[in-house]
Design a protein around this nucleic acid. Sequence first.
DNA 1: TTGTATGCGTTATCAA
DNA 2: TTGATAACGCATACAA
Lengths: 354, 354
Amino acid sequence: MAATLADVAARAGVSSATVSRVLNGNYPVAEATRRRVTEALRELNYVVNGPARALAAATSEVLGVLVNDVSDPFFGVLASGIQREAAEADLLTMICHTAGSADDELRYMELLLRQRARAIVVTGGGPEDDGHRRRTADLVRQSVSRGTRVVFCGREAPPDSEAASVVFDNDGGAAALTRLLLAAGHRRIAYLTGPPHHTTSSARVAGARQALTEAGIDPDSCLWIRSGFSRAAGLEAGRELVRAGVDCTAVVAGNDLTASGVIASFRACGVRVPEDVSVAGFDDLPVAVDVVPELTTVRLPLRSGAVTAGRIATGARRTAPGAVVRMPAELRSRDSVAAPGGGLTGMAGRLRAH
Amino acid sequence: MAATLADVAARAGVSSATVSRVLNGNYPVAEATRRRVTEALRELNYVVNGPARALAAATSEVLGVLVNDVSDPFFGVLASGIQREAAEADLLTMICHTAGSADDELRYMELLLRQRARAIVVTGGGPEDDGHRRRTADLVRQSVSRGTRVVFCGREAPPDSEAASVVFDNDGGAAALTRLLLAAGHRRIAYLTGPPHHTTSSARVAGARQALTEAGIDPDSCLWIRSGFSRAAGLEAGRELVRAGVDCTAVVAGNDLTASGVIASFRACGVRVPEDVSVAGFDDLPVAVDVVPELTTVRLPLRSGAVTAGRIATGARRTAPGAVVRMPAELRSRDSVAAPGGGLTGMAGRLRAH
DNA sequence: TTGTATGCGTTATCAA
DNA sequence: TTGATAACGCATACAA
């Protein structure tokens, strides 16, 4: 049923090699021949057999992108930036949702490697686990040796792997944000740290702790609360903070999505931001300025980071093996952070009243 | 560099056929042989060549999902439901982001077809364009004839194509929502219709108009405003409605995301929901209950629709060619709709004051 | 400018 | 239980 190159060749009265040339346009073909072939192609509804082509040419036209969460705008921005560059190089982007699972991440990397994807871009942070890093490094090595380029965007490539990485200054951004809070007079700060054992979480925590230490404040005098990176996590954490009447004047969420959840639950509990409590986010996604009050946060150049990663992946930009491109973070001071207010102590009543 | 079946076979001192059998476990292999082969496999870091396997076996282990927008939770829910079923069938899901472009939709369908994907699930609404429908139908026919199953989830398959579809009752849901508003006493309603020439938009508009007509109200006495399906579209539309001082007591957004944008911009302008104006959404995504006030909306069983589509795609559920599975819509009456208030007229002053 | 012939790495059929 | 060997559909080096 499905027409092959040979079928088309027979119909056009040429050899299959000629049909292949017409298809790929990489060798001269007489105009008349080309027309006959094109005609036959159309009549038979010919569709290239990707696997056969990939097998013969030892490459494919697919660029794979691994994301933690397809419905998180953080990854939406990254994915679309990468996709744009892929399209420039005539590659089609396939996105794989790992749900933050280390195993799924490896499974999809291996799948893309099997498929002889032209390149793989692994986005976002990853598990802080040496076993996982080692297995990732193995896959990267195999990918490279098979001609599949691998680029990390949002974390560093595992040690000794030849993959390039584009990383964001989570560390420095978090430090700057904490310094801003300290300068505003905050001393009792609750940090929602993001998922545990995750490179992004850790970098942000490390930056914050360093800024605290430099200011002569014991980091352990602050609250460090595990939490996801989702909006739901922020909603829950916000409710919990109020219920527990936690003694703090500022909440630093792991990212903007979480911060928006915190703000929503604070509003529902009658906690005013920033009058009672200041709230800060991270990433500077569009939601940061949708929220009321607008969010003080740290801007990461996700878009340009994604484009850079995409360009490395497509080969439009050459880098040394193992190169690391560092993208800066920039403080965005808006309305959600002000001088310390009354804090959350004694707010639990409002929660119940609501 | 890259080890092939033959390399492994040589190392293990067996034929490549035997290695293949060990790999696939579909034929008996002596235990001792199996161990030697497994060993060699590991030593050589063997990775299956997907294209070669797909070529020989005439099938792959990939299930493709087409979505309009990767960072829209609507598609996040659909994609994750489908992925779940795919995983059950040992297929890996690749998501393709079409950005709502009809051309990209066709390009990705064709890519997946070329790759001999096991199945393709096309999610969400699509362009209301006969040319596009016809070209889609062509691709569907070719897919089916090549063994790639195609399922539509969120719109009907094009006429005469053998693809199954899972559709949501946008029409009935929109009618029910409008009846609710009418029963609450609203007569001057502003509808944000969603993107034009889009099956989902049209179905929702049609349902609303029908309910209005049945209630003896001329649909054209209401406002029908084009708008996207994004949150940003809602923000903008909300601001515009206030600025123009539009004479309405209720706003029906195209979906929940847009509704959340409308509510945010109303809040920024000092418009109270539902005291001044009622707002309704559609879909009942998680955001519907995050928002203050909680959103009156129409619940679509996205999750189970996605699972159904996934099951059809993997073959776990058999359907007649061209079968259409209809999923009901259900009204969710919450706090964002109340009796008519003062409306937006004269609110523009507040906007400027802000 | 075109055709012939070979190889890409698997799976699967047929013998042994 | 295992080994030869023929597809699978295409790209490309080599000839013409």
